[in-house]
């Protein structure tokens, strides 16, 4: 069950996700590759529609039809999981890959006590009696910082605030000891004053358990404080990936440059990433060559016809002909 110590927990290679529609195939994820190592937090940023959530959904096997994986592979601790039969994939979810969604107010079943929801998840995956599972649930609630957990365990979701509910969701994601957590904008729906607490908690727990995390967010502040590495996505592709300091302070790809420049200072959170002129192309009208070239301030002739691959650029990697030649600085 355990991964070879050196290998990545998650390895995504040339992933392609497409929607078959009446007007042909729309490729929403087009050749995405990245890896996450044990205990590492990979931040994923990019403007709305870049394909961040779809990538996460593909990894946990919860793409909604007609969306499906049409190319590439996904490996969890070396084992290929993108072609598993549904029943095996189901057993993997919650057990080896936990998930945290955006809205804690709607993530929990309103009719079941939170304790029962944790117990049912534990017992689905681990051979435990009801009593043992309940003891573990209690332990988890304490670990995620629910005060008076012994009484709160029997409360219903509506009796908790948003921040407390997201703590419960984190407990649910962690309860079977997964190797990987997919956290899709876990703090976006929360009050600003609580966001830092939740990301801090997530970071601490994942460090303790050496859980790998794919953290999707719009908040560069969260990335700066939480992530080890960051992947910048644009139009269904990873355009830059590298250590978080490097990408924030010395972005190579012109899109990343624009993205980082749109933040006044990493210390002062600016949630919006949409301050680059123009907008992302629609899936049914992707430009040839580099998808960013119509908006790119440093576009070369070859950018309109050839698609750049993700190549080393400094200590990061960027998919850009310009970046490969002369490093750009923000």
């Amino acid at each position: 069950m355990t991964a070879p110590a050196a290998g990545p927990v998650l390895e995504v290679r040339d992933l392609e996700v497409a929607f078959d529609t009446r007007h042909g195939r729309l490729r929403a994820i087009d050749g995405v590759s990245f890896a996450i190592h044990p205990g590492e937090i990979l931040g994923v940023v990019g403007e709305s529609g870049a394909g961040k959530s779809l990538t996460g959904a593909a990894v946990i096997g919860l793409l909604e039809p007609p969306g499906r994986i049409v190319g590439g592979e996904i490996r969890l601790a070396g084992r290929r999981i993108d072609d598993l039969p549904p029943a095996q994939m189901r057993a993997l979810r919650g057990r080896e890959i936990g998930a945290i969604f955006q809205d804690p107010l709607t993530s929990l079943n309103p009719l079941l006590r939170i304790g029962d929801q944790i117990v049912e998840t534990i017992r689905t995956h681990l051979p435990m009696s009801d009593r043992e599972a309940r003891a573990k649930a209690l332990e988890l609630l304490v670990a995620v910082g629910i005060p008076a957990a012994e009484t709160r365990i029997d409360h219903y979701p509506h009796q908790f605030s948003g921040g407390m509910r997201q703590r419960v969701v984190i407990a649910l994601a962690l309860c079977a000891g997964p190797k990987l957590i997919i956290a899709d904008e876990p703090t976006t729906a929360l009050d600003v004053s609580i966001q830092a607490q939740i990301t801090g908690l997530l970071k601490r727990l994942c460090r303790e358990h050496r859980t790998a995390v794919m953290l999707v967010t719009h908040d560069m502040g969260v990335i700066a404080e939480t992530a080890d590495r960051v992947a910048v996505m644009y139009a269904g592709r990873v355009v830059e990936i590298g250590p978080v300091d490097e990408v924030i302070h010395r972005p190579r790809h012109p899109y990343s440059v624009g993205l980082m420049a749109s933040i006044p200072s990493v210390r002062h959170r600016a949630a919006s990433l949409r301050q680059i002129d123009g907008s992302m192309p629609r899936l049914d009208s992707m430009p040839t060559g580099c998808a960013f070239h119509p908006r790119c301030p440093r576009c070369l002739p070859r950018c309109t016809s050839e698609r750049p691959a993700l190549e080393p650029a400094g200590i990061a990697r960027a998919a850009c002909f310009v970046a490969a030649e002369a490093p750009a600085h923000a």
């Binding site: 057993a91 979810r93 057990r95 998930a99 689905t124």
Partner: peptide
């Protein structure tokens, strides 16, 4: 969402 999350919990 909570059904999606229930599926995500396996």
């Amino acid at each position: 969402d909570f059904i999606r999350f229930a599926r995500a919990r396996g």
